[in-house]
């Protein structure tokens, strides 16, 4: 297994280079002129800007040279300047990263935990009404467009019932806590402001639920299948034979084994989470990378959208690698090899 992970580590830079290459290819095929992808259509009239961009990205040089410059710029963290915010894309992304991470982590936790519980229950009561209901609920979760369920839930819980706050990370007039981690829930706790903590947590609930529902659907389906497989194993009978009660059998014996294949899927749901985050952030006016990407796409802010795409690809690669490592650690048969 160590060898497998090392192989994956070696493949990482090549995949990264591949991502950059595809990004280069896309931005070079932007409706004829790659220059548009750097400075945008409106600036094409401005000769100074055009000349500066040409020099910086080497657009007057040959294609291989351009490619080398592109790769060089990206590897030093230079994604260009956003047409919309007029700031370096890398800086924009860094500023917005914590908001996205806070949302994605909350959604992943909520979705995985509920998905695991639902999957265990469905497997335990296989083919009963509970099982069918749990599976339908999960299926609806992964079939509902988040940009719609977000709107509906926002309407129901915020407008109609008034239980939860509206969009945003905090109420419009609230000052955010001092930035330490960038996670508002954690920062408000660190600064000892419980009022603020409550507020940020309440704001987090709806978007995390909307996003987590997708994850729950995927996780519960897989947990159910692997639980069914595990529950028919000899060691489950053996555990019962030594006097283990139902809950212990389900969670201590069966789930621990069923979690091994599930881990892969939880890593895999990261892709869904990014997709979901893009749309959820837009609905909930969440100032993260997802809403940044949508704003960029809507305004044809090419440097920004390419930056998000590359960073998203990198995050995706990283999450896959972490999943592999987690998988190896979860299964002693692999870990010790």
């Amino acid at each position: 297994m160590t060898r497998y992970i090392i192989r994956r580590l070696i493949a990482m830079p090549f995949l990264l280079l591949g991502i950059i290459t595809i990004a280069f290819f896309i931005s070079h095929n932007t409706r004829g002129d790659p220059l548009i992808s750097i400075i945008g259509e409106r600036q094409m009239e401005n000769p100074d800007v055009v000349a500066a961009a040409k020099a910086r990205w080497g657009l007057d040089k040959s294609l291989p040279e351009q490619y080398a410059i592109y790769v060089g710029n990206l590897t030093t963290g230079d994604f260009g300047t956003s047409l919309r915010t007029k700031r370096p894309v890398a800086q924009d992304l860094l500023d917005r990263l914590p908001a996205t991470l806070e949302l994605v982590i909350a959604a992943m936790l909520a979705g995985s935990l509920t998905g695991i519980v639902l999957g265990v229950i469905a497997a335990r009561f296989r083919d009963s009404g509970i099982d069918h209901l749990a599976r339908l609920w999960a299926l609806i979760g992964s079939s509902t467009p988040v940009f719609w369920s977000g709107l509906i839930l926002l309407y129901v819980f915020s407008v109609a019932l008034g239980w939860l706050p509206g969009p945003g990370r905090l109420n419009a007039r609230t000052l955010p806590p001092e930035t330490i981690t960038g996670f508002l829930t954690i920062d408000s706790l660190l600064s000892g402001n419980l009022q603020l903590f409550r507020e940020s947590l309440y704001h987090l609930i709806l978007p995390a639920l909307v996003l987590g529902w997708t994850v729950m659907g995927i996780v519960s389906r897989l947990v159910r299948v692997s639980m069914l497989d595990v529950l028919s194993q000899d060691y489950i009978v053996a555990a019962r034979a030594r006097g283990a009660r139902e809950l212990r059998v389900l969670f201590n014996h069966a789930l621990r084994n069923a979690m091994i294949p599930t881990l892969t899927i939880i890593g895999f749901t990261f892709a869904y989470l990014i997709t979901g985050a893009v749309l959820t952030e837009t609905i909930f006016s969440w100032p993260g990378i997802g809403s940044y990407a949508v704003d960029a796409a809507r305004n044809l802010d090419y440097p920004a959208i390419m930056g998000v795409t590359i960073v998203g690809g990198m995050a995706f690669l990283l999450s896959n690698l972490l999943t592999d490592i987690a998988y190896a650690f979860a299964d002693p048969r692999i870990r010790l090899r």
Partner: peptide, 23 residues
Amino acid sequence: SSLRGKRMAMIFQDPMTSLNPVM
């Protein structure tokens, strides 16, 4: 279950599959 493993115990045919692999 309060009898099993305490007053009456059982061992199985295949020790390869009767032990939980992750414990």
